[in-house]
Design a protein around this nucleic acid. Structure first.
Length: 430
RNA sequence: GCGAAUGUAGCUCAGUCGGUUAGAGCGUCUGGUUGUGGUCCAGAAGGCCGUGGGUUCAAGUCCCAUCAUUCGCCCCA
């Protein structure tokens, strides 16, 4: 067994076994179907990318996050760490051919050179939806509806969509005299309000030279209901938030799931309007979906302006939550029928049976090695195949087959010609 | 990049005060059953006790280093 090369994989990456893939595909299909139900169209963008299209001009944060290297032509290459940058490049390059407002979804792997932790990998899938080319708050409300719809489809019940307006947050902070250069650091601190102690945040803000730190917290910190929160903010312009809530109501979004949180900030600096952050009942998992409105998505690539809004669903965290909470049924069969090979002399007959099922479009497979029936049944059991067909010398002589139903062990001898319709009958009944 | 905890069979873990041949459950394989899985019974295989060094008559156990994993910080899905 021991050979020279360890069968090791990079930290923060994983192997997916057939059982894993069955689960993942099932969940992915639900997410995808919901996106399509709302009229979003799928795109894909290249993995291998010029570093500057991934990292932008000011590299600081993203440079640390992204995997990058040089190719044989000494070009700087990087792997995407999210789907927003690739999308913004895509829009700048292809907007002439897109229906505007453009509603796209994109489900691809991304890479981050981070330290892995629970729910934090170096290679993982994101499921992004964005609407570009419209400034209307109806977009925000539709996205809110989409978020609740996706988690409903996945049977993840106790989600909370935390909502805030970045514009409002900026207005409040500027009102308190926070310098422009300190806005982002201040927002990063405020974002931690629910995580760390109030006083720690106040201390941090004071270090940034913000005097009325405690007072700011007084305005931003809330655990009351949405109406109370709006009241607390009455000195400021909350018309966007109110209109968003009204439209969400029109869309039928369950309002108890929408939580106005004036302290919510989101680290990324490109958000400019309403922002979202979705957490499950397992808050230690972190955010399972997040996003918001940004102005001028493609500013880096084009003078054409595209305002937009989008959210990203964290597929790996969603999977983790569903697995840990028993929301995924496992054991998807690989096919409906396993045709056993009784002995060397019966292989031709088994292939003939297989052909008849193939012709009738019944998913089936032949056991591909020479062994006893016991092993072949075990194989069917392991692959969750519901029916096993045996044709021994006796059946072959009479042109019959034995069909065994694995779930209850019942078996029946039928003419070989009736096998396909016999199997199909079980599925039509449902 | 910083801090903490943990590394024993494929997996989950036990292993007392340092003491003789390192254990269990699950999984795997074989047989009971030469025409039948899942259940049951019997048996077997599987270990550089993460790696390297040190202390000791003696180390899975103590010390140091290193690597890996997990958690927290940073950042974030």
């Amino acid at each position: 067994m021991k050979k020279g090369v360890e069968p090791a994989i990079l930290k923060g990456t994983r192997d997916f076994l057939p059982a894993d893939m069955a689960q993942r595909n099932e969940v992915l299909a639900k997410i995808k179907n919901t996106f399509e139900k709302f009229g979003y169209q799928q795109i894909e963008t290249p993995i291998l990318s010029y570093a500057e299209t991934i990292l932008g001009k000011e590299k600081e944060n993203s440079q640390k996050m992204a995997y990058s290297f040089k190719d044989y032509g000494e070009r700087d290459i990087a792997l995407p760490f999210d789907l927003t940058m690739p999308f913004s490049r895509f829009v700048a390059a292809n907007w002439r051919d897109l229906p505007i407002p453009f509603k796209r979804f994109q489900i691809q792997r991304v890479w981050r050179a981070e330290r892995p932790q629970r729910g934090r990998l170096r290679e993982f899938y994101q499921c992004d939806v964005d609407i570009i080319g419209s400034n209307e708050l109806v977009c925000e409300a539709e996205i809110a509806k989409l978020i609740t719809q996706v988690f409903d489809e996945l049977k993840i019940k106790d989600i909370k969509i935390r909502v805030n307006s970045r514009k409002l947050l900026n207005e409040i902070l500027t009102g308190f005299g926070v310098e422009k250069d300190n806005l982002i650091p201040a927002i990063r601190l405020i974002d931690k309000l629910d995580k760390i102690d109030n006083t720690a945040v106040v201390e941090g803000l004071k270090k940034l030279g913000i005097k009325n730190a405690a007072e700011i917290i007084g305005v931003l910190k809330t655990d009351k209901d949405n109406q109370a929160t709006l009241k607390q903010l009455e000195a400021y312009d909350t018309t966007d938030l109110q209109e968003f809530l009204r439209l969400s109501r029109e869309f039928g979004v369950d309002e108890t799931r929408l939580v106005l949180d004036p302290g919510l900030a989101r680290g990324l600096d490109y958000y400019t309007g309403i922002i979202f952050e979705v957490v499950s009942s397992d808050e230690s998992l972190g955010t399972i979906c997040a996003g918001g409105r940004y102005d001028d998505l493609s500013a880096m690539f084009s003078s054409k302006e595209f305002s937009g809004i989008g959210v990203s669903f964290g597929f790996e965290r969603i999977m983790l939550f569903m697995q840990e909470n028993g929301l995924i049924a496992d054991g998807k069969p690989s096919s409906r029928v396993l045709i056993t090979v009784f002995d060397e002399g019966s292989l031709d007959g088994s292939i003939k049976i297989y052909k008849s099922l193939l012709k009738a479009s019944v998913p089936a497979e032949i056991y591909l090695d020479e062994t006893n029936l016991s092993k072949q049944f075990k194989y069917a059991d392991k692959k969750n195949i519901p029916f096993v067909v045996v044709q021994g010398p006796d059946e072959l002589r009479d042109n019959e087959v034995i069909v065994r139903r694995m779930s209850n062990g019942n078996q029946k001898k039928i003419p070989a010609s009736q096998l396909a319709s016999y199997i199909a009958g079980y599925y039509e009944a449902n």
